[in-house]
Design a protein around this nucleic acid. Structure first.
Lengths: 266, 266
DNA sequence: CAGCCTATTCCACATGGTGGAAGCGATGCG
DNA sequence: CGCATCGCTTCCACCATGTGGAATAGGCTG
């Protein structure tokens, strides 16, 4: 095995193909073969061959005129199926969150600088939350968003903020970059984030991370009217939320083998 | 080359990995290695190795207790990026549709038995359409949905219908399977579909397919109030829509092949 | 507790993937 | 207008890499 540092037996060409997809996903627009060469360190011929394979299956797209590459439409459908599936096997944890808090529980991921809600378990209250599955919100206004940002390298955070700006949604939204960075640091240290009417008046939200094999975490939250989620109640709920967070992460990371123990949480 | 029948130079292990992802996406729930063996014809060891690679990157997920596999969370984000990108390079065609019809143009794909809107170019009318990007609707109630179904094998269509049923949305929704099948045949023959207030009262929609390297087509549509999209106007718009459909498909299919270059005509 | 079925690991082999270098086609420059 | 350049694509000999049959481990079932 050429790349001995990677875990177990991994298929080189598949890994490289995935690398390509990820580089393409991260890029703001289309990329040429040479750019990909620089980004991945692979020889052009190899990249071309890999791309040809992805191309023929619709996983990559090549602009007919510029000949540059980007992600293909096939991934849209796959992503949708994956989201549905992801929501399904995260459901037990969401249910747990909903039951321990009595409020609606959400699952979200960071996608193209936006927070996207992937699954939800609604509370039984008459007054419930509004976010719908599939909704896209800005990270800096939401608790899940702050969690998703807090556990990524600073440069990613910076890119996201540069792209979105920090528009205010309510009087309490954090619109100052310095303050946001301080808050994110705190979130990373504490392991949770709170949104106290920063996205919507009267709505409060508490979020915790879920770490998986993916380098970016997902986030789970509970959200409800501020009247029901005051500081006192939050203090009571939080320890149990953190515990669920850790449990869910452990479940995701254990791929059935006790050999690999990559603990990632603070 | 052992497998000479496949187009050009494709990387075997990558193709197989993609096969696995697609099988997992198509399955209603998690799958074991043996099921995958049957579905793909690959030996168990090979599948296992491929899955290990996908697993370690978050592209597949293994339930810690049942040890069965499904799609991983990483694909959710990738899919999102891909959707955004897909919408971006389809935009010229959508703009063309919007301009030739004066109505809002949409791009949609079939995803997990649902129609999902991926991109949109809004019309300049004050009264516009309602579908939002990311929205999920049932195929049988929409023009795009009918297009997406019409160009897939009968068994896929059947599975989708079996899963969703044929709930009515308005008095005009097609709720009879026989009638739907006849309509789909007509759609396939004519190359377009119409939704005449079948999804929403007062809203009419015309859709055409876009064929790419992916075996499933996408669909583009224009939608607006019935008052503006009566039979007469539809007849005038349709030929041009079909032309855009063909042009867009040609553009998608020519992957670096110096075949057809569809110049746009304002 | 034995039998069976499924996931996982192992390993010798040769197939399939690799990448340096040569071809092309398109822009840009003189 | 033709020559130079640059980046995408194709070729091919080599051998690292992925392959898959068979052995192992683990978990249910009867």
């Amino acid at each position: 095995m050429a790349d001995g540092r990677r875990g177990g037996g991994a298929v080189q060409s598949v890994e490289r193909a995935l690398d390509l997809l990820e580089v393409l996903a991260a890029a703001p627009d289309e990329m040429g073969v040479t750019e990909l060469t620089e980004a991945t360190g692979l020889p052009g011929a190899t990249i071309h061959r890999l791309l040809a394979t992805l191309l023929s299956r619709g996983y990559a797209h090549q602009d007919p005129v510029t000949r540059r590459y980007s992600l293909g439409s096939r991934l849209v459908r796959l992503g949708g199926s994956a989201g549905r599936r992801f929501g399904t096997w995260m459901r037990p944890w969401l249910v747990e969150l909903m039951e321990l808090s009595g409020e609606t529980a959400n699952l979200a991921v960071l996608e193209d600088s936006h927070v996207v809600y992937v699954a939800q378990v609604p509370s039984r209250h008459k007054v419930r939350m509004f976010t719908e599955v599939g909704n896209r919100l800005l990270p800096h206004t939401t608790a899940v968003g702050k969690v998703l940002l807090a556990f990524r390298p600073r440069e990613v955070t910076g890119a996201v903020i540069a792209r979105n700006g920090l528009p205010g949604r309510t009087g309490r939204t954090i619109t100052d970059a310095g303050r946001l960075y301080r808050e994110l640091e705190q979130v990373a240290r504490r392991g949770y984030a709170v949104d106290d009417e920063e996205e919507e008046e009267g709505v409060c939200c508490i979020a915790v991370p879920v770490f998986g094999p993916d380098d970016a975490p997902a986030a789970m939250s509970v959200s409800g009217p501020t009247s029901r989620l005051g500081p006192g109640r939050r203090q009571r709920i939080l320890p149990r939320m953190l515990r669920v967070s850790a449990d869910a992460s452990a479940a995701l990371l254990s791929a059935g083998d006790p050999a690999r123990r990559g603990d990632r949480h603070p």
